[in-house]
C-alpha cells in the first residue's frame, strides 16, 4: 500500500520520541556545563610536564631538555632552551634542565607523539578541554610554570599509566643505586687504582650552583 513505508517510519519516530522520556538508552543528551562528561582514562588533550614534588615544581622537573620532543613534534609547537648550569635531579645526578619550555596550544594537535618519544617520562597528556581564552597569542602559549603539574595530578587523571611509570622509574633508580653500590665496593677493594678520573667530578661538584 502506498504510504505504508511512511507510516512505518512515523511509528519508529514515535517510539524514539516516547522512549527518550523514560528509556535511559534513548536519552543520550548531557546538560553539559552543569553536568560534566565522564572522561575515559585514556582521554588526552594537551601535554603537561611532570614534576615529582608539588611544593617545588620547577626544581623537580623530570625534563632534562634533551629536545627530542621538540624535534619530533609534527606541528613544531614545542620550544625549549637548555639551561647553562646543571641541577641535581630526583636521583641526585646533576642534569641540564629546561630554562625555557613553552608549548603553543593554539598549534598543538594533542597527537601525543611527544609523550611517546620522551625517554624520561617527563611529558604526559593532560585532560583539560575547557581552555577557551579571549587572547589568541599570549594566553594560549603555555610556559614552563603553567605546564608543570605534579605527579600526584598525573595519578588522578591516568592512574594505570602513572602506576606503571612509577614502578618503572623506581626499578630504574634501584638498579642505578645497586650499580653505584657495586662500583663503590669495587673501588674500595682496589685502593691502588688511580684516582685521576674522579678528580674532575669532585671539582665540578664544588662549583657554586648559582653560576649564571
Amino acid at each position: 500500500m502506498l504510504g505504508s513505508g511512511i507510516l512505518q517510519g512515523l511509528l519508529v519516530t514515535a517510539k524514539n520520541f516516547v522512549g527518550s522520556f523514560h528509556d535511559p538508552a534513548r536519552y543520550t543528551t548531557l546538560e553539559y556545563p552543569e553536568v560534566k562528561p565522564a572522561l575515559p582514562e585514556a582521554y588526552r588533550n594537551f601535554p603537561f610536564l611532570v614534576c615529582d614534588n608539588a611544593t617545588d615544581p620547577l626544581g623537580t622537573l623530570r625534563c632534562v631538555a634533551c629536545q627530542i620532543c621538540e624535534k619530533e613534534c609534527p606541528p613544531q609547537c614545542i620550544y625549549i632552551e637548555k639551561s647553562r648550569d646543571k641541577k641535581p635531579d630526583a636521583t641526585g645526578k646533576p642534569q641540564i634542565y629546561p630554562a625555557v619550555f613553552a608549548i603553543d596550544t593554539s598549534v598543538c594537535m594533542s597527537c601525543q607523539i611527544c609523550v611517546e618519544v620522551c625517554p624520561f617520562d617527563a611529558i604526559k597528556m593532560d585532560q583539560v578541554f575547557e581552555v577557551a581564552t579571549t587572547d589568541r597569542y599570549a594566553a594560549l602559549l603555555l610556559d614552563r610554570g603553567q605546564l608543570t603539574k605534579p605527579n600526584t595530578y598525573f595519578h588522578t587523571i591516568h592512574p594505570t599509566e602513572a602506576a606503571e611509570v612509577d614502578a618503572r622509574l623506581a626499578a630504574d633508580r634501584q638498579a642505578a643505586e645497586e650499580k653505584a653500590r657495586v662500583a663503590a665496593l669495587a673501588k674500595a677493594k682496589a685502593p691502588a687504582a688511580p684516582q685521576a678520573p674522579a678528580a674532575p667530578v669532585a671539582k665540578r661538584d664544588q662549583t657554586p650552583e648559582s653560576a649564571p
Binding site: 505504508s4 513505508g5 511512511i6 512505518q8 517510519g9 519508529v12 519516530t13
Partner: peptide, 8 residues
C-alpha cells in the same frame, strides 16, 4: 524500518 521502504 524508518527509511528503506519510505516512498518519498
Amino acid at each position: 524500518a524508518l527509511l528503506t521502504g519510505n516512498e518519498i
